[in-house]
């Protein structure tokens, strides 16, 4: 189709700017577009998207679709869903890419079902198969124990991409794009789910997702108290603090500390784990760490298969001297 969007990135927006994941999707999208010989388009829908148009162009989109409608707000995901569906119907993309953010993870499956196509969820890599000319998506399954390569049969082929799986592409302000404005019809009655209240957890420390160093504890710590000691280490190193799901489920630390498949994804330079066994579902959230350090009394623990440095020992004895030595080194 001559006026097809080609590879279409559906970008989320935040307060009049593109979400950081948009630049990651464009990196993935440009590769797929090159493989298919199609253009790359970026679409945004929101109540305030004007400024995002140039931002999308600067990332390297050949075409930018902007849908501005005052009733679109992040508190009404059903409206954004319908906006995205209408954008897809009007622009006939061959491929649609969405970020697996908190919002994207929910929007993508409904969008796929609305368009009557399949979806490759939680992908780490998307590539074009030269023989078939189709996009192949690589994604972890079975909690990260296995990797699957999947192909969506319908059109558009849809993939939801894990944040941080791709490097964000560099913006270049001199780039320009063809800007197409679409008109879509939305009305309030489509928003049935209503936000009543949002309660942000107060946190003093460093944000886990952007921390350069992260320290985390697991079930082997046995109680909430040892996390205080980990906080001391985190304080010394300017590190973020996290936990395994077992420690969260035990009620020792809040859910926002959870690292892993169903928790946060971290990509620090240094990740220090204490009494964490390294289950695949945990590693799913931290395998992008540059260096993993493990303290665990079980030499057979899986964590040692992915760690760079390890101590086989009892944390109660290992950690106090570790902390003291760090304090001396850093003073």
């Amino acid at each position: 189709m001559a006026d097809s969007a080609g590879v279409l990135v559906l970008a989320e927006t935040e307060g009049g700017a593109l979400s950081p994941t948009a630049a990651e999707l464009v990196t993935a999208g440009l590769e797929v577009a090159a493989g298919l010989g199609l253009p790359l388009s970026v679409a945004m829908a929101g109540s305030d998207v004007e400024a995002t148009v140039q931002e999308a162009a600067s990332l390297g989109a050949q075409r930018v679709y902007a849908v501005e409608d005052g009733i679109l707000s992040t508190d009404k995901p059903e409206l954004l869903l319908e906006a995205w569906a209408q954008i897809c119907r009007q622009t006939n993309p061959a491929v649609v890419l969405i970020a697996r953010t908190t919002a994207g993870r929910d929007l993508a499956p409904r969008l796929a079902a609305r368009l009557g196509v399949g979806l490759a969820q939680d992908c780490l890599e998307v590539k074009v198969d030269e023989d078939s000319g189709r996009m192949i998506a690589h994604r972890p399954v079975y909690g990260g124990n296995a990797m699957a390569a999947v192909v969506c049969n319908g059109t558009p082929q849809m993939a939801c991409i894990r944040p941080k799986a791709y490097e964000p592409c560099e913006p270049d302000d001199s780039r320009t794009a063809e800007v197409v404005s679409l008109s879509i019809t939305l009305d309030e009655s489509m928003a049935r789910v209503k936000l009543v209240e949002r309660v942000a957890e107060e946190s003093e420390g460093v944000r886990l997702e952007s921390a350069k160093i992260v320290v985390a504890g697991g079930r082997g710590l046995g109680s909430p108290e040892p996390f205080k000691d980990l906080e001391v280490i985190a304080g010394l190193l300017g590190a973020g603090i996290g936990a395994s799901r077992a420690a969260v489920d035990a009620g020792w630390v809040p859910p926002s500390w959870q690292i892993g498949l169903t928790g946060k994804t971290i990509t620090p330079d240094l990740y220090i784990t204490v009494a964490i066994s390294g289950a695949s579902q945990h590693m799913a959230g931290c395998s992008g760490s540059k260096v993993i350090v493990a303290v665990n009394k079980d030499a057979e623990a899986n964590i040692f298969k992915e760690a760079r440095y390890g101590v086989v020992g009892d944390w109660e004895k290992v950690m106090p001297s570790f902390t003291e030595t760090l304090r001396e080194l850093l003073s």
Binding site: M147, A148, A149, F304, G310
Partner: peptide
């Protein structure tokens, strides 16, 4: 099926962990 699996495999992780050993656990921590 709308989505087909063309490959399924177990990813290989290379284990090159350097184990730090000391006189005892406390020494290893240091």
């Amino acid at each position: 099926p709308q989505v087909e699996t063309v490959d399924l495999y177990v990813p290989v992780t290379e284990a090159d962990c350097e184990f730090i050993e000391g006189e005892d656990d406390a020494d290893a921590g240091r």
